[in-house]
């Protein structure tokens, strides 16, 4: 457990689970979750785009919930479980959504893709839990119908500068249809 009594300390040692592996890290407390993943744990799949929560390239899942890892300090996640794109699927053992991105040609440069995929996986869980969005017609309804408009609205936090949006939509629709 992080020692919170020592107030002159600007570094911290704590445990955090990343892709099912428990890690013990010692970092400058300014380290964002994104920089912990990339620079300390060597997990380069998660990308740094804007570093200000605007582009979504750094999206990861924390305890299954999608967040921008650039706008979070690593120390805030002590004891929590982080899933990055490396934990979603690797070459030879791809997640169905990764396969759908390949099948649909849902990227050009690929820089935003890890964030897009982690974001979409988090988004599908939000829909399963019945969480509404701005595109949800009936806020009181318990079940959300995943229309194209819902997918577009729910994925608006992930920018693709190559503008592969139509193919990203198709890839997500493929897997959402298969899961339903």
């Amino acid at each position: 457990m992080l020692d919170t009594a020592a107030r002159d300390v600007t570094r911290g040692t704590f445990e955090i689970t990343v892709n099912d592996e428990e890690r013990r890290v010692n970092v400058d407390l300014r380290t964002t979750l994104l920089d912990l993943l990339r620079e300390h744990l060597g997990l380069m799949g998660t990308k740094k785009g804007c570093d200000h929560g605007q582009c979504g390239a750094c999206t990861v899942l924390v305890d299954g919930v999608r967040i921008n890892s650039c706008l979070s300090l690593a120390v805030m996640h002590e004891g929590q479980a982080v899933t990055t794109i490396e934990g979603v699927g690797l070459p030879g053992n791809l997640h169905p959504l990764q396969t759908a991105f390949l099948d649909r040609d849902a990227f050009q440069c690929g820089y935003c893709t890890p964030g897009q995929i982690c974001s979409a996986l988090g988004m599908l869980e939000e829909v399963r839990r019945g969480e509404p969005s701005q595109a949800t017609e009936d806020l009181a309804a318990a079940i959300v119908s995943l229309t194209d408009e819902e997918i577009r609205e729910r994925m608006s936090g992930n920018i693709c500068r190559c503008s592969a949006y139509p193919q990203i939509l198709e890839a997500i629709r493929d897997i959402a249809g298969a899961a339903a």
Binding site: G53, G56, T59, R66, N68, G122, Q134, T136, R154
Partner: peptide
Amino acid sequence: LSGASAQLRN
């Protein structure tokens, strides 16, 4: 729901 993105609202 009209504010920010899903990641930020989470």
